[in-house]
């Protein structure tokens, strides 16, 4: 027994060592994943700047609007899938939450800029696509709101899937503290979330059927 009494603190020391190694390892994995997303984000930011230059160029030269629309859609699709990946990584993140939150913020800023850009393209090239801006709360703990958000993401993903060339889908989290986004939201007089802003005019925040929603968008 005398020799065995040491087992109590020996086990504690071993546990602490293993736990600390595990925590460091976990932190390392998450930092690596965040680094990968950051790299994609940097590429997307360059892409957006490129897009902005292109829009400015449309005013000066006679550049194809279809090409700009295609570029806008491609960009939107890319950051949509990148953000989805980020969403998955950050939801499982335990240690590096701050980095992931920062990445979220940057993606939301990119998407806010995309929303503004899409309006500018519409002004320059005409109304030949529909912009669906989906504003949601990423940090809400309200189960009712979460359920509604789950419903909206399914509905919007399905509509985008069925009309890939006509719908520009821009999901933006509103609780990241972006002042530009807050200003736009205030301008649209939006107080209830989640909400889908269709072509910068119509707001849908209630549960509607898919056909009703399509009617609102396309008619």
């Amino acid at each position: 027994m005398v020799g065995n009494k040491h087992v109590f603190w020996q086990a504690l020391v071993f546990t602490i060592i293993i736990f600390v190694i595990g925590l460091i390892f976990g932190f390392f994995i998450e930092s690596y994943l965040a680094g990968q997303i950051e790299y994609s984000l940097a590429k997307s930011e360059i892409n957006l700047l490129d897009e902005q230059v292109r829009i400015r160029a449309i005013g000066g030269f006679d550049i194809d609007c279809d090409k700009s629309k295609r570029g806008l859609f491609e960009f939107a699709d890319r950051i949509y899938s990148e953000a989805l990946k980020l969403e998955e990584q950050s939801s499982s993140s335990q240690f590096d939450k701050e980095t992931f939150d920062l990445l979220h913020k940057r993606y939301d800023l990119l998407r806010t800029m995309l929303w503004v850009e899409s309006n500018e393209i519409k002004e320059l090239c005409g109304d030949n696509f529909h912009t669906l801006t989906y504003l949601y709360e990423s940090e809400t703990t309200n189960t009712g709101v979460r359920a509604k958000q789950l419903y909206f993401s399914r509905l919007l993903a399905e509509i985008k899937d069925e009309h890939p060339e006509d719908i520009l889908l821009i999901p933006i989290a509103i609780d990241t503290g972006l002042s530009s986004l807050e200003m736009i939201i205030e301008n649209y007089e939006i107080t209830d979330f989640p909400v889908v802003v269709i072509n910068g005019e119509i707001k849908v925040s209630e549960v509607v059927t898919k056909s009703e929603f399509e009617k609102i968008v396309f008619e």
Binding site: A147, K148, L150, Y151, R154, L155, V207, V208, T209, K210
Partner: peptide, 9 residues
Amino acid sequence: LATRYSIYA
């Protein structure tokens, strides 16, 4: 809740 909404929609 989400399933109820989705069935409705």
